[in-house]
Amino acid sequence: MSAPVATKPLPSPPPRRWSVPVLLLGLAVLSVASFVEVGLDGARLLSADAARRMGAFLGELAHPALDPGFLGRLLKATLETLAMSAVGTLLAALAGLLLALPASRVPGRPPGWWRAPTRWLLNVLRSIPELVWAALLLISAGLGPLAGTLALALHTTGVLGRLFAEALENAPDGPALALRVPGVPRGRVFLYATLPQALPQLMSYTLYRWENNIRAAAVLGVVGGGGLGQMLSFHMGLFHMRETGTILLATIVLVAAVDLLSSLVRRVLNP
């Protein structure tokens, strides 16, 4: 007579997890509450009257103004916007790199006391929008591109400083360690080991922020920051839709040109 075969007990069902349903329910409630708070009126948005007005608006934008005098002013404003974004980004890259050094952690060494205050400073710089910086600087620098350039530089310093610090921290430590062991000074270790490895990423971040600053420089004209934004604010306020369309077209062309240049530089740095 054969011995009875022992049967394994059936595994107990896994405990039901309520976290996912509760999370989805919370997101659904939050989404509905957001729609209610915003006050979206779908019937009004999709009405025939709204479509007619939008069509007329787009029709005027589609026929840009080509007056020679206006185009001359537009070219000057375009070059001014390009200069504002380039100078603001360059100043921010230099200041961001200087602040990234104390804000980054050196592998194998405890962070210094200056790391936390520097990171707080970077947080403050990038937390304040460019429009607020420009409004504050208008008091001392006055109307024009100087206030807009400094506003871009201050905000972008906070952004690039944080990105640069993370790039330096993530750089491979092998070459730097090989130089630190024989007693090479810290400055030379940074110049000959850490910086060359992180430089392509630093350049990529800088070029990306330059593209963003082109668009931000166009917005700063709302508070008198000069460039295309100042022309856009003026003509939109007077409902000059043809001139507004030309300004938007110039902004698109400028952003596309900077984006093409950035892509070429990235291709050279990262073959």
Rank of each mutant, 00 (worst) to 15 (best):
P4H: 13
T7E: 15
L10P: 00
L10R: 14
S12H: 03
P13W: 01
R16N: 04
L24I: 07
L25G: 12
L27V: 08
L30Q: 09
S31D: 08
S34C: 01
D41Q: 14
A48G: 12
A48D: 10
A50Q: 08
A50F: 05
A51Y: 00
A51H: 01
R52H: 09
R53A: 08
M54C: 06
G55P: 01
G55K: 02
A56P: 02
F57K: 07
G59H: 09
P64C: 04
A65K: 02
D67P: 00
G69Q: 06
G72Y: 07
L74F: 01
K76I: 11
K76M: 06
L79K: 07
L79R: 11
E80A: 13
A83L: 11
A83N: 06
A83G: 12
S85I: 01
S85H: 01
A86C: 08
V87S: 02
G88F: 08
T89K: 02
T89C: 15
A92V: 03
A93W: 00
L94V: 14
G96P: 06
L97M: 14
L98E: 00
L99G: 06
A100P: 01
A100D: 03
P102M: 09
P102N: 12
A103F: 04
V106L: 05
G112T: 07
W114M: 13
W120Q: 12
W120F: 14
L122Y: 10
V124M: 07
V124G: 05
L125N: 06
R126T: 07
S127N: 10
L131S: 11
L131Y: 08
V132D: 13
W133C: 05
A135V: 03
L137C: 01
G142D: 08
P145T: 15
T149L: 04
T149N: 04
A153C: 04
T156F: 04
T157V: 07
L160T: 09
R162G: 02
F164R: 04
E166G: 03
A167C: 01
E169I: 00
G174Y: 02
P175V: 09
P182L: 15
P185A: 15
G187S: 10
G187Y: 01
R188S: 06
F190E: 07
A193V: 02
A193M: 04
A193T: 01
T194K: 03
A198I: 01
L199A: 15
L199D: 15
Y205V: 10
T206C: 09
T206R: 09
R209C: 14
W210C: 13
E211V: 11
E211D: 15
E211G: 14
N212R: 14
N213K: 14
I214G: 12
A216V: 06
A217R: 08
A217T: 05
A217F: 09
V219N: 13
V219P: 12
V222R: 02
G224S: 10
L228C: 07
L228H: 02
Q230F: 13
L232D: 00
L232H: 02
M236R: 02
M236W: 10
G237A: 11
G237W: 09
R242A: 15
T246H: 05
T246D: 04
T251N: 10
I252K: 12
V253I: 07
V253Q: 03
A256F: 11
A256G: 14
A257Y: 00
V258M: 12
D259W: 08
L260I: 05
L261Y: 06
L264F: 13
L264Q: 15
L264C: 12
R266F: 05
R266Y: 06
V268E: 03
V268K: 02
V268L: 12
L269Y: 06
N270C: 08
